[in-house]
């Protein structure tokens, strides 16, 4: 019985240890203001399906200490700079049609969001 319990515990430990993660909260900053998106610009508002002709999208926000977050329902976004304010967007055959790319700018005072519309087509 002792061996049985040890076997069980060992297997559970292996799986549970793999999921440990640490998160830290940023300290409030007196020099920041509520963020505002000044511009959200895509260099192409329609792109060919595939990876060769991306749309480069740039989001500029004010407020200080801005953290940018990008998301889209279907399609592929990759960051182009360390700040995270510029990304490239492409889509494979899964992602044809209108795609809304969402840029969220956030700091310790709050967050604001805007979307860019890109159309993916088969030439």
């Amino acid at each position: 019985m002792k061996l049985n319990v040890i076997t069980l515990l060992l297997m559970l430990t292996v799986v549970s240890l793999a999921g440990c993660n640490k998160k830290s909260n940023p300290a409030p900053d007196a020099n920041t203001t509520f963020p505002q998106i000044i511009s959200l610009i895509a260099d192409h508002d329609s792109i060919k399906v595939g990876g060769t002709e991306p749309s480069i999208i740039t989001c500029i926000a004010s407020g200080g200490n801005i953290i940018y977050t990008w998301e889209v329902d279907l399609g592929d976004i990759f960051p182009l700079n360390e700040e995270g304010s510029q990304v490239r967007f492409t889509g494979s055959d899964c992602c044809l049609g209108e795609k809304y790319i969402k840029c969220t700018a956030a700091n310790d005072k709050g967050s604001v969001m805007d979307t860019a519309l890109i159309y993916i087509y088969i030439p």
Partner: peptide, 9 residues
């Protein structure tokens, strides 16, 4: 899960 500032698909 994120890839830098991007929410992964």
């Amino acid at each position: 899960q994120m890839n830098g500032p991007v929410v992964l698909p």
